[in-house]
């Protein structure tokens, strides 16, 4: 993660130096993830999401010189985005309950427990499965973009390592190595999302078994 932080600070530095490739890397690496971050917090409304993400990125660009790398770039963008969402909801309603994030709630334990539970059609089980699905997506979006993409291609779409290598423009061995790093990073992030729920031990979540 230290390397990632360093790379992010370099990316910002290059953007400030008017490097167009850096701008493209920034937009391609963060836009989709930020969009999903906003959309899940805005009742899945595409129009408002578009507006909020637009404003967030515009403000982020204006504040770019103030980014010091204390947090990851994505976390920094999410902070700006959270403020925008909060302002938006303040404008449209006083009911703040709509912005409570599920992954911040103790109830997430239920979602993790549901992994081992037999599938049923009960509404509560269905809700838990949906939440688990969403938590996996949250974890994928917290990873560097190419890690999240590679894991999604492999485990959601079922692509082979060769196909992932072709898609990333790297060799098969490099893709395998990247997948291994991505799995470890996912383990850390997903573990952090669920740690409070499973009593502070990653072993209870099964996460240690993915290394």
């Amino acid at each position: 993660m230290v390397t990632e932080d360093l790379e992010e600070r370099r990316l910002v530095k290059r953007m400030l130096a008017h490097d167009a490739q850096a701008f493209n890397a920034f937009f391609d690496g963060y836009f989709s993830r930020l969009y999903r971050f906003a959309r899940t917090r805005l009742a899945d409304d595409p129009e408002i999401t578009k507006e909020i993400v637009h404003v967030t990125l515009t403000k982020a660009i204006r504040k770019l010189a103030s980014y010091r790398g204390e947090a990851s770039l994505f976390t920094w963008l999410c902070t700006i985005c959270r403020n925008e969402i909060s302002d938006h909801l303040d404008r449209v309603t006083r009911d703040r309950q709509h912005v409570v994030l599920t992954e911040d709630l103790p109830d997430v334990r239920a979602a993790v427990d549901a992994l081992a539970a037999p599938a049923t059609d009960e509404p509560e089980d269905r809700f838990r499965r949906l939440e688990t699905t969403r938590l996996i997506q949250v974890a994928l979006d917290k990873l560097p973009a190419h890690y999240g993409d590679a894991l999604e291609w492999k485990y959601v779409y079922g692509f082979s390592v060769e196909e992932i290598a072709a898609n990333l423009g790297v060799g098969v061995e490099a893709a395998q190595s990247l997948l291994a790093r991505a799995k470890r990073a996912f383990h850390d992030v997903y573990g952090a999302l669920t740690r409070d729920i499973v009593g502070g031990g990653t072993g209870d979540s099964g996460a240690t078994e993915w290394s």
């Binding site: 989709s32 499965r129 994928l140 485990y155």
Partner: peptide
Amino acid sequence: HAAPRVHPP
């Protein structure tokens, strides 16, 4: 339990 992530239009 995973599903494809939403892609922005």
